[in-house]
Simulated assay, not measured.
Amino acid sequence: MTWNSHRNRGEILRAVIAAADARVDGLLPLDVEGATTAFHDELDLLGALQLRWHTRLSGRIERELVHQPMALEDAVVAAWRGTADEMPGVRAVLDHYRAEPRDEVMAAALRKASAKEHHLLAVMAGQAGTHATAAAARAGARIEARARAGWRPGASLEPAVAHRSAGLLGRLRAALAA
């Protein structure tokens, strides 16, 4: 893959994410210009969305753990909810295809991605070691279920938008006040 095709693929992925977040219908936005040429098939695009979700979730967990170092599970739950608020369309797409995969290859890929996410959640919540085990998978699934149970789509989006639009001085004031 050349640098230009890699960069174009990234731009198209951003457009796909924006379309998914605008629609929140759970369907892959294959009608985005370039999506069908930049990605080999639905599974390729779904994998890119899964990777973007996982990367954003991992980063958000790290940030939450800085703010809640003694309440690990609460931090992980807050991070999952915050990521879902930031990427509601992507979350809807992943959930839709996990529940209704196109074929067994897609089902297997999404099961594996879900297991890895559950392991991440359990490890970061201090409930599992680095080796993936059945107990880690159960703990991660429980943490995800807890995050989903208290998640209200868009509930935490307003403060984030207000904070982003506050400008540098507003963010500095907020940081100093905290």
Rank of each mutant, 00 (worst) to 15 (best):
V123K: 05
D85T: 02
R23C: 04
L168R: 13
A35T: 10
E144C: 03
A145T: 06
T37H: 08
V66D: 14
L72F: 03
A175H: 11
R102T: 13
A35K: 06
R91F: 11
R111I: 08
G82E: 13
G150E: 06
W3P: 00
A175C: 04
A71H: 15
D31N: 04
R14Q: 10
L45V: 04
Q50A: 12
A113E: 07
V16P: 00
M87Q: 13
D31A: 03
V76R: 09
R9C: 00
T83I: 10
H67D: 14
Q50W: 04
L43E: 05
A178L: 12
A22P: 01
F39A: 07
H96Q: 07
L57E: 02
I143F: 05
R56M: 10
S165R: 14
Q127A: 13
A125S: 15
S5K: 11
G59V: 11
R146E: 14
G47E: 08
M1H: 14
A175G: 05
R81C: 08
A71N: 15
V161E: 08
G154V: 02
A115S: 11
A35F: 09
R63G: 12
A141R: 12
S58T: 15
R146S: 13
L120R: 09
P69A: 10
R56H: 12
I61C: 03
A135I: 07
H54W: 13
A107E: 13
E11R: 09
H6G: 00
K112L: 15
E73K: 10
H54N: 11
G167H: 04
T36Q: 12
L169W: 14
K116Y: 15
